[in-house]
Computed example of a mutant assay.
Amino acid sequence: MEGATHSFSPERLERIARMEEWHFWFRGRQAYIESWLTRIALSHSERALDIGCGTGWMVRWLASKGVRSIGLDSLAPALARLRAYHPTLSGVQGDAERLPFRAASVSLILCLDVLEHLDDRQALQEAWRVLTPGGWLILAVPAVPGLWSARDEAAGHRRRYTRALLRQRLQEAGFCIVDLRFYMFLLFPLIALTRWLGRFRPSLQEIEERPPSLLNSMLSHLLRLEIGIGRHIPWPWGSTLLALARKAC
């Protein structure tokens, strides 16, 4: 599912928006991120920025919790959808490598399945610049270079990350890593098989986006188990890396 929100036709955005409500991959990732956002507990006076806001799901969720949230995207269709469906929310067109915000102006940055499309050093330096002292960064990136497939190429990915590479990039930018974990450990064999088979039959990768409802329900339950166990032990690998970092140690 990595990179799914970066195909920006209006029809594709609507499809992704529906998937965010029910698809096992999105629901599991959202559970991790929501637990971190609850932990951070921004005050109503603080601002949050969602870089690469896509359908606007995170902007909407933050706003529902009383946080002043802003969505930023480089492409107009995503912002048009945000304004059409959520006219009270703020959206800005801009480049993650040159953020149109002054230094130390936001308390939280979300960058979910975006960094792999960019000059990651420049994007993280920009995130550091605009965060307030003690500000938070939440990242999600595709993991395990060996999973590279036609899906990555279609999504415009430049790389898939190892834990060591993501740690290095964050530390180079000056961030203190609070939590760095893999996601999709229990389903990793299925994903690896799908990506390998997809090299020969690309249509098979569509199964990831449109699983039958019974299979989706079963996988959702399995991910809830993974998340519960993951609170106590670190998973050694997974198809996604999630990071919680701070502009302070």
Rank of each mutant, 00 (worst) to 15 (best):
S9W: 06
W22Y: 15
L222G: 02
E153M: 06
M1C: 10
R246Y: 15
F182Q: 05
P202D: 04
L42D: 09
C53V: 06
H44G: 15
L79I: 15
L170N: 06
H44R: 15
W148F: 02
A154M: 03
E14N: 09
C53S: 13
L89P: 08
H44Y: 10
G156H: 10
R210T: 14
E11H: 04
L139W: 00
H86W: 11
F175W: 04
G230M: 03
L108M: 09
L124T: 00
A17T: 05
T88L: 11
W25A: 14
A245C: 09
G156F: 08
A173I: 01
I207K: 07
I40H: 03
A104M: 02
P236I: 12
L180S: 03
P189M: 07
S239M: 08
W235V: 03
W22I: 15
F185R: 05
G3A: 08
W136K: 01
L204I: 14
I33E: 12
G174Q: 08
L115M: 04
L225I: 10
A84V: 07
D179T: 00
D73N: 08
A103R: 06
I40D: 07
Q168S: 14
L110S: 08
G135L: 05
A78V: 08
E11K: 04
G156P: 10
V130G: 10
R27S: 08
L79W: 10
P133F: 07
I191L: 15
P212S: 05
D119F: 07
G174W: 06
L193Y: 11
I207F: 11
R81L: 13
C176D: 14
S69G: 12
C53E: 09
L37I: 15
S105G: 10
E116K: 00
D152Y: 03
V59D: 10
H86C: 13
A63H: 14
I177S: 02
P100S: 12
A143C: 05
I51R: 01
D152I: 04
I51P: 05
L204D: 03
L190G: 14
L110V: 06
T55P: 14
E126Q: 06
D95E: 02
Q93R: 15
L108W: 06
R151Y: 04
R29C: 12
Q93H: 06
A192K: 13
L241G: 09
A155R: 02
L118E: 00
V114R: 02
T88Q: 14
T88C: 08
R68F: 12
L187P: 07
P77I: 09
S239T: 12
S7A: 04
M58Q: 11
L89G: 09
A96F: 00
H23I: 01
L215Q: 05
I191Y: 11
A17C: 03
L108N: 11
R159D: 04
R29A: 11
G56F: 03
V114H: 03
R167A: 14
R18E: 14
L72M: 15
M19N: 14
W148M: 01
P234S: 13
E206Y: 08
L166H: 02
I109F: 03
R27K: 10
R102P: 05
S107Q: 13
D119Q: 07
W136V: 01
C53K: 08
S64E: 11
L180H: 01
M1S: 15
A17H: 02
G56C: 12
L62F: 07
D113P: 03
S74E: 04
A103T: 12
G230A: 04
R15A: 15
A31E: 15
H157C: 03
